[in-house]
């Protein structure tokens, strides 16, 4: 009994989190629990605070009130805790953000070498196996600018995976991509989900949400308006704001 209680301690906990940019409140009393292995899709209109919320989870943004506890570490000003959290939390950005001056393989090896102190041969081996996992081992020696957007985003995912994170955050990973490249990235993300990775994905790819997510969260104006299973979310949304939003994106 005690065991089952401790094992259900959420791996990510946001409790009454507020975030201000100057006088503007971007997050309003956000409460969110994510269990280990859970796959959450976050959607909502532009400016609703989706990016801000997931960026608070690895402290790319600092919250102003409330508590954020990730993998047992509460995020405060303590550099130690921030580093400990960032090592375990991977993040994939809309704009890929591969290091332009490093080859693909060096992009993948940099953090393991510097942060985990992995010896170079080991780091290389691991990087190659990650590139195989995202299905582009043949691009290892190229530079980011020589790859297509879809390839770059898969490299970015592989780069995060090289740190063996417990949790992966995705901030609209496919919205900067040409339509024909979206699927190759979603496939890699789906593989990850099947392997049991804890994931929070900000995305408007509703097909992905339906097939992969355990829960869909709808945000609007800095609040979590609704959290539901994908089925309920799409077929039977509770709030009017959700309905309006769904009618807008499904109209496309």
């Amino acid at each position: 009994m005690i065991n089952s209680v401790t094992s259900s301690e959420p791996i990510i906990r946001l409790k009454d989190v507020d975030k201000f940019f100057g006088g503007f409140q971007a997050l309003k009393k956000i409460n969110l629990n994510v269990e280990k292995g859970e796959r959450i899709v976050v959607c909502g209109p532009s400016g609703s605070g989706k990016s801000t919320m997931i960026r608070c989870i690895n402290r790319l943004e600092q919250h102003n009130a409330g508590h954020i506890i990730v993998n047992g570490h509460e995020l405060t000003d303590q550099v130690k805790d921030i580093d400990a959290v960032r090592r375990e939390v991977g993040m994939v950005f809309q704009s890929f953000n591969l290091f332009p001056h490093l080859s693909i393989i060096d992009n993948l090896m940099l953090a393991p070498k510097l942060v985990r102190k992995t010896p170079k041969p080991k780091a290389r081996e691991q990087a190659m196996s990650m590139l195989e996992r995202v299905r582009i081992p043949e691009q290892a020696d190229k530079y980011p600018s020589q790859l297509s957007g879809g390839q770059q985003q898969r490299v970015a995912i592989a780069r995060s995976l090289c740190m063996n994170p417990e949790i992966m955050l995705f901030d609209e990973p496919t919205s900067a991509l040409d339509p024909e490249m979206i699927n190759e990235v979603l496939e890699v993300m789906t593989d990850l989900a099947k392997e049991g990775m804890t994931m929070i994905c900000v995305t408007h790819e509703m097909g992905f949400a339906r097939s992969v997510a355990d829960a869909v969260i709808f945000m609007d104006e800095g609040e979590i308006v609704e959290r539901n299973t994908p089925e309920e979310f799409f077929n039977n949304p509770k709030s009017d704001r959700t309905k309006l939003f769904l009618s807008q994106i499904l109209a496309h």
Binding site: R87, M91, L98, F99
Partner: peptide, 27 residues
């Protein structure tokens, strides 16, 4: 230097100093 690269470095767990030496400086 594009802030995005530094955020990617931070998200990977690089310290401020490591980000400066390995990302900011070469670019």
């Amino acid at each position: 230097v594009d802030r995005g690269y530094l955020e990617a470095g931070a998200a990977l767990g690089l310290s401020i100093r490591q980000r400066f030496i390995y990302i900011t400086a070469p670019i």
